[in-house]
C-alpha cells in the first residue's frame, strides 16, 4: 500500500478501486486525530482503543509520524504498544513516516484508511498538525478530533494556527493538571463561540479528558458518535466524503504530474470541474483514469 514503485502502485490502485466500490455506506466511522506534539495523542488513542475494545468494537489505527528530513529515517511511535493487547486481532496498528516525498503520504494514508474501513468498525488516523495541506488527515476523516494541550497562551496559538475552523470535536487533554486545563478548555470554548458555526449547524464540543488517568474517555467517544449521527441525520456524510475525495484526487494528480501535466488536459480548474461532475464511485479509479489521459496527452505533445 505504501510501496512507491510504479507497477506496485498501479496494482494497489486497482485493488483499492474495487474495494472502495464495495464498501457499504456509511460503513466504518473514520476519525482523524490531530494536535501538537506532546499533547498526549498516543496515550489518549491507547485509552480510546481500550475503551472501544472493551465494548466489542474492532479498531484500525494509522499513525503518521514526522520524518527526520536529514537522513530520511524516522522513529515511528515513541509510543507504547496499544494496551498490552496480546494477540488481539481486533486491533490493527500501523505507523507511517511522513516521507520526504510530498504527497506519497496522502496516497498511503487514504489507501490505508479505505482498507481499514473495510475490515474494522472504526478507523483512526493520527497525525501532527492540521489544515496545512489538502493531504492532511481531514481528507480521510468523517470526524476530526483535535487534542489540545493545556497551557498559557494556547488561545493565541489556536488563533494563529487557524485550527478552530476544521475540527469537529476538541479534547483538552491532561485534565489531571486541574486549573490550567480548565482555563484552556474555557478559552477554546470562547474562541469557538466567536467563529462562525459549521455549515451543517454542528457546534464543536470542547471536552476535558485525562489520557493518563483514563478520565473522560467515555464522554469523548459519545461526542465522536454524536457527530457522526449528526452528519448522517443531516445527510452531510456523503457530501463530506465526496468533497474530501475530490480534493484528494486533485492533489494526487497534481503531485504526480505537476501543473504542467494538469495543463495538458485543460488546467487545474478544468480538472477540478471534471472531478465535481464525476460520479466518483472510487477516487482511486478516477485518479487512474485521468492520470492515464494526462500521460497520453503528454506523450502526444
Amino acid at each position: 500500500m505504501d510501496d512507491a514503485r510504479p507497477e506496485r502502485r498501479a496494482a494497489a490502485f486497482e485493488l483499492l478501486d474495487a474495494l472502495e466500490r464495495r464498501l457499504p455506506f456509511p460503513g466504518a466511522a473514520r476519525v482523524g486525530m490531530t494536535g501538537a506534539p506532546g499533547a498526549g495523542k498516543s496515550t489518549l488513542l491507547d485509552g480510546l482503543v481500550r475503551f472501544l475494545r472493551a465494548r466489542g468494537e474492532t479498531v484500525g489505527v494509522i499513525a503518521v509520524d514526522p520524518s527526520s528530513r536529514r537522513s530520511g529515517g524516522a522513529l515511528l511511535g515513541d509510543r507504547i504498544r496499544m494496551g498490552s493487547r496480546g494477540a488481539d486481532t481486533g486491533v490493527f496498528f500501523r505507523s507511517m513516516a511522513a516521507r520526504e516525498r510530498l504527497g506519497g503520504l496522502a496516497d498511503a494514508t487514504r489507501a490505508s484508511a479505505v482498507v481499514l474501513a473495510a475490515a474494522f468498525d472504526r478507523v483512526f488516523v493520527e497525525t501532527v498538525g492540521v489544515g496545512q495541506s489538502e493531504s492532511d488527515v481531514s481528507s480521510v476523516a468523517d470526524t476530526l478530533l483535535y487534542v489540545a494541550q493545556p497551557g498559557a497562551g494556547d488561545m493565541l496559538q489556536f488563533m494563529k494556527a487557524g485550527i478552530l475552523e476544521l475540527p469537529d470535536v476538541f479534547a483538552v487533554n491532561k485534565a489531571d493538571l486541574g486549573a490550567v486545563a480548565e482555563r484552556t478548555a474555557a478559552e477554546l470554548g470562547a474562541g469557538l463561540g466567536l467563529s462562525a458555526p459549521q455549515d451543517s449547524g454542528w457546534t464543536p464540543p470542547v471536552l476535558q479528558v485525562s489520557a493518563r488517568d483514563a478520565q473522560g474517555i467515555d464522554s469523548l467517544v459519545e461526542a465522536l458518535d454524536a457527530h457522526r449521527r449528526h452528519l448522517e441525520e443531516a445527510g452531510d456524510l456523503a457530501s463530506r466524503r465526496r468533497r474530501a475525495a475530490e480534493a484528494w484526487a486533485l492533489e494526487s494528480l497534481e503531485i504526480r504530474y505537476g501543473s504542467f501535466g494538469l495543463a495538458a488536459i485543460g488546467g487545474r480548474e478544468a480538472v477540478a470541474a471534471r472531478l465535481r461532475d464525476d460520479a466518483l464511485e472510487s477516487a482511486f479509479a478516477v485518479v487512474r483514469r485521468i492520470g492515464a489521459e494526462i500521460e497520453e496527452a503528454l506523450r502526444k505533445s
Binding site: 527526520s68 537522513s71 500501523r94
Partner: peptide, 28 residues
C-alpha cells in the same frame, strides 16, 4: 537505525512474543 535512514518502530519494554509478532505483521 533512524540516523542511517531507516524507519524504526520501537514500542518500549515488557512485550510478549505475541505482541512483537503482531506488531511486525501490522507494521509491515
Amino acid at each position: 537505525a533512524r540516523d542511517v535512514g531507516m524507519e524504526v518502530v520501537y514500542e518500549g519494554i515488557r512485550l510478549t512474543p505475541q505482541e512483537i509478532a503482531q506488531s511486525a505483521r501490522d507494521e509491515g
